[in-house]
Structures are given as C-alpha cells and as structure tokens.
Write a protein that binds this DNA or RNA. Structure first.
Lengths: 229, 229
DNA sequence: CCAAAAGTGTTATAGATACACCCATGC
DNA sequence: GCATGGGTGTATCTATAACACTTTTGG
C-alpha cells in the first residue's frame, strides 16, 4: 500500500451490500438477515459490511458473501452504488451493491440459524433497512435483463438440471408463464446445453432428462450476445 | 448531517469521474482534461473530484460536470464503481464513474482553454491516467446498449435535428453503417419524433426536415421498452 | 389402466434485412 | 441541367408467438 497522499478530509465509509438470489424450484428468493449492529439492530437487512482499506470492492463482496454462506466461486456482479447523504442513519456511508446467484441447495440450513438469515420470496419482501429494498428491486430488474442475454441463470440451479426446472426458473424470474415448446426449442438451439443420459425421476413418473451448461461451447459462440428467451 | 456513529477506521476517499460524450456530426468524442493535481499532474484524464461528506454521489457528479462545462440539466447516468486497491497511485480511492451526454454546440470554446480540456474521438484515445481508459470503454459499451432501447441519443444533438444527423449519430456510436431507409422507418414508427415545417439547409441543396424529440409522447408509450434501432 | 408430467411440430405473424431509384434545390 | 444529399417502397427472410396431442411409467 502506497502512503496516502491525498488529504484526510472527505473520506467516507464505503460498504458493500449483497443481494443474494436463490431459487427453490418454485420461487425466486433473496437471502436476508437480521442486522447485527446498531443502528437498526434486528431489522431486516441485506448482508453487508465496510470495505477495508486494503481490499478491492470485488474482494469485499466476495468476503461478505463468503461470511454469510460459506461459499466461494459464486456468480457475482456489481449492481450500482447508492450514495444519498442520509441513506444510512448511522453516518455517511456509500454502499456498493452486488448481486449474487447461488444454488440454494448448496446453502446449509445450519448457517441460516447462525446468522439469523432467511430466504424470502421476492414478492413477499418485508420492510428492509435504509434503501435495501430499492437495491433488491434494482437487482431483480437487472437479473431480468441479464438472463435474457447471458447464460447466468444456470448459477441458480444444481449443476445437473432439467428443462422443466430451467423453465420454472425463467418463469419465476419474469413472474410470467412461458410456453414450454418455444422455450425448449430456443434453449436447445443455442447449443450450449449438453444432454445427459440420466433422468430426474422424483418429480414425474416419466422422468426428465438432465442437462448441464457447456461453458466451453458457450465461450466459443459468445463473441458477444446470444439471445436467451 | 447526523453525527458519525461508525468507527473512523476504514474510511476511504470516494471520487466521481465523468465520461462526457459529445458528437460533432461525424465522430463520437469524449471530453478529456490534463490533470490538475499530483500525482499525475498534466496527464490526460477524465474530469473528476472527490465526493464531499455532505453531497450525494449524483450531486457530486452534477457538480463536477458543471465545473468543467458550465452546463446544468444534462443527461447523466451512473456507470460503475472502480475499486481496485492500487488503482490510484496517490492513495486508496474508489471511483464512481458517471457518463454524460451533451450537445457539443452548447460547450464554449473558451471553457476548453480554461480547463486545458479537449474533445478527443473515441478511436483516438491517448493513454489516460489510472483506469480511466477502461472507464471510457465501459461507458462507450453502455452507451451502445442504452441507445438501442432508450431515447437518450437526442441529448447528443441540438434540440432540432434532422434524420440524417440522427443516422450519423447512431453510425458513430456503433461505428458501423446503418441503412437509412430501415433506420428512418423504424425511428418514425416509434412515434416519438415531431416533424417540424422547418428545414436544415446548410448541408444540402434540398434541405432536410428538422425533428424534435417528443418527451410527452415518449412517456405515454414507454411503460417499458421501445426498441430503437 | 390411469394420472401426471415430459416431450414434440406446424402455422401465422411481425420484425429485420437487403436493396435502388426519384426528388428538390442551388449553382 | 447537373451535382448533391434527402427521401421513399417492396420483397425476402428470420424470429417469435400461438397452439394440442402423444409418450412414458409408477402406482
């Protein structure tokens, strides 16, 4: 770290807040906690923390996500920075929001209790502290845009997933029904899904074939912009 | 301002840097200055400044834009926050980048000299300080996405503009030729341009009709997403 | 044999693309 | 009358949207 050469005035707390999305097969959910510090102790909140002087914004986001979920190598993207003067009643804090997509099955029940955290469906959001509800809504909006053109939805599903599961995910994200014939034709025509011989048998007698996302094929194709959905 | 309740550790300089776009009828340009402070005095740079403790990020962006251009009520949008630990050699500084679209004719030559500023075509960018070149490239990319779906390109043109001018603008933004018949059909079919009786006569003998962007019509239509171009 | 979910094909429509000629005017 | 840029129409193709029946199999 180089010595600080700028004046020490005008330095500001910078926080990172994480909108963590999960999908349980039915609904799109966000991981919320009860805030563990004053002001606002106990109020519903996103997971967050201050950026340390010797870590980048991205590193802070990874650290904060890890501290709540125990997970690494998670899809994460910077959303927006929130900088209203009085957005945090504890003092001047600028917050850089990140959103993350995790496979909800990877998330341990026990960690939920340790952090007093809960998965909450997006259409049943309680009041959140500060501007966190706005952040969740902005993240949801961004997710909708993004999954339409980028293969990131898979991060919300297990590694092996079925087309009906993928369809349900998109319907949950858009909160709208999607025609399954058009959907599967389009998804498969992108050429980035690898069909497995194995079937998922728990949700129907017939069983649905598993697929995996083929990262390599995708990178070959995606010299910019396939269109999903 | 409420008293600071959080510890004074971990406070960080937060800067705003502005990518200011202009269009001279031919090329898309960015407004660059020679940096006026150490470290990096004299190096090509974006216009920027530290966020003050009692102003929001958006306010800081407006202030900084105004200080360089004298302009108010300018289209401006937050782009991204840049937070690598050593991105600024003068100390730990997180930068929130904003991009602005201005009508280059509104910008006074004299202000250029006062600030040692210059309009530089995007494909002739010199080396810029820190990560500013990345910021310009990210902003250009975002502008491309945005003008495809939102009526913000008009902010780069005079209030009254012709279809050929608008076409040139889009061609400059995408750095690609666009068919003028398809373009004007599509633009006009959106129903957000008002044709004036008056013609622009300086660039052709026949003259091209002026249009103005019809904000009201747009707001009526745009309960989400027209598709431009 | 039946209930439940998986899988599959065709038609209609809208939007995108490609393409070339006439028009109006100042000189 | 001619050079210059402005303006316009049509045909093709591709992508999307709408829509319903057959298949599989565990019980």
């Amino acid at each position: 770290m180089k010595p600080i050469k700028y004046s020490t005035e005008d330095r500001i707390h910078v926080a990172v807040d994480c909108i963590i999305f999960g999908f349980d097969g039915q609904e799109l959910k966000a991981l919320l906690i009860h805030r563990k510090m004053d002001p606002g102790l106990g109020v519903w909140s996103l997971m967050g923390g201050f950026v340390k002087i010797d870590e980048s914004l991205d590193e802070a986001a990874v650290r904060i996500l890890h501290s709540l979920t125990g997970l690494d190598n998670i899809y994460m993207e910077q959303l927006h920075s929130y900088g209203a003067v009085h957005r945090d009643i504890g003092g001047r804090v600028i917050s850089v929001a990140y959103f993350a997509l995790i496979n909800i099955e990877d998330y341990e029940e026990q960690v939920l209790d340790e952090h007093d955290a809960r998965w909450v469906p997006l259409n049943e959001l309680p009041d959140l502290i500060f501007d966190h509800k706005q952040m969740v809504q902005d993240a949801h909006q961004r997710l909708r845009q993004k999954v339409a053109n980028h293969p990131i939805g898979f991060a919300l599903l297990p590694e092996k997933f079925t087309l009906p599961q993928l369809l349900s995910l998109y319907e949950a994200i858009y909160d709208a029904p999607i025609d399954k014939r058009n959907f599967s034709r389009k998804m498969l025509s992108l050429g980035i899904l690898k069909k497995l011989a194995e079937k998922e048998k728990s949700s129907s007698r017939k069983g649905a074939f598993f697929y995996v996302f083929d990262q390599e094929k995708y990178e070959k194709l995606s010299n910019e912009g396939l269109s999903f959905i």
